[in-house]
Simulated assay, not measured.
Amino acid sequence: MAGGRGLCYVQIMPDPIALVTPLPAAEPVALGMDPAALAEAARFAEAHETPWPRDLRAHLESGYFEPAPDNAILGPVAPRGGPAGMILRRGAVVASWGDTARADMTFSVAKSYLSLLAGLAVDDGLVADLDEPVSARVGSPAFEGARNGAVTWRQLLTLTSEWEGTLWGKSDVIDRNRDLAREGRAKKGEARPLHAPGTFWEYNDVRVNALSLALLHVFRRPLPEVFRDRIMDPIGAGRDWAWHAYDTARVAIDGVEMPSVPGGGHWGGGVFIGAADQARIGLLVARRGHWNGRQLIAGSWIDAIAEPGALKPEYGLLWWLNTNGARAPAASPRSLFASGAGGHVTWIEPERDLVSVTRWLDPVAFPDYAARVMAAVRD
Results as ranks from 00 to 15, higher is better:
164 E>Q: 15
28 P>H: 13
73 I>S: 01
46 E>M: 15
169 G>P: 04
200 F>C: 11
163 W>V: 09
344 H>G: 03
48 H>D: 02
211 L>G: 12
315 Y>W: 06
39 A>E: 15
280 R>L: 00
235 I>L: 00
214 A>E: 12
63 G>I: 09
115 S>P: 08
237 A>T: 01
99 D>Y: 02
131 D>N: 13
200 F>M: 10
168 W>L: 04
359 R>V: 12
246 Y>I: 03
309 G>D: 10
76 P>G: 08
238 G>D: 05
11 Q>D: 15
289 G>A: 11
192 R>S: 15
96 S>C: 07
4 G>R: 13
85 G>C: 02
339 S>I: 13
280 R>S: 00
98 G>W: 00
212 S>Q: 07
127 V>W: 06
341 A>D: 14
37 A>C: 12
245 A>N: 07
72 A>W: 00
23 L>R: 00
361 L>W: 06
379 D>Q: 12
205 D>P: 09
40 E>A: 15
311 L>E: 11
354 L>T: 08
298 A>F: 08
270 G>D: 00
224 P>M: 08
289 G>Y: 04
84 A>Y: 01
183 E>M: 15
188 K>T: 07
239 R>L: 02
284 L>E: 02
100 T>I: 14
93 V>Y: 02
316 G>T: 05
246 Y>E: 10
264 G>P: 06
159 L>T: 09
37 A>L: 15
161 S>R: 11
31 L>C: 10
162 E>W: 07
322 N>Q: 02
238 G>K: 01
225 E>W: 02
368 D>L: 07
181 A>I: 07
162 E>M: 13
136 A>E: 11
46 E>C: 04
79 P>M: 10
170 K>E: 11
91 G>W: 02
289 G>L: 07
331 A>D: 14
126 L>C: 03
67 P>C: 02
289 G>F: 04
358 T>M: 04
182 R>Y: 13
333 P>W: 05
137 R>Y: 04
10 V>F: 13
286 A>P: 05
238 G>S: 11
142 A>F: 09
145 G>I: 06
86 M>A: 01
96 S>M: 10
376 A>V: 12
93 V>S: 06
361 L>P: 11
376 A>G: 11
131 D>W: 05
93 V>P: 03
177 N>F: 03
337 F>L: 14
127 V>S: 02
9 Y>P: 00
160 T>N: 10
58 A>P: 07
357 V>W: 00
94 V>S: 06
365 A>P: 01
236 G>Y: 00
112 S>E: 06
201 W>D: 11
171 S>E: 11
39 A>S: 15
104 D>R: 03
73 I>G: 01
169 G>R: 09
119 G>Y: 10
75 G>M: 05
115 S>Y: 07
224 P>R: 05
299 G>V: 06
92 A>N: 07
375 A>P: 08
180 L>D: 14
352 R>T: 14
37 A>Q: 15
6 G>I: 07
222 P>M: 11
208 V>D: 05
223 L>N: 11
247 D>I: 03
322 N>Y: 06
100 T>E: 01
284 L>Y: 09
351 E>M: 03
61 E>T: 10
177 N>E: 15
21 T>R: 02
206 V>W: 10
153 W>D: 06
48 H>T: 03
287 R>H: 12
84 A>T: 01
343 G>Y: 07
100 T>H: 02
323 T>Y: 13
196 A>H: 13
376 A>M: 10
194 L>W: 12
48 H>Q: 03
271 V>D: 02
322 N>H: 08
338 A>E: 03
227 F>W: 14
42 A>M: 03
125 G>Q: 05
359 R>T: 10
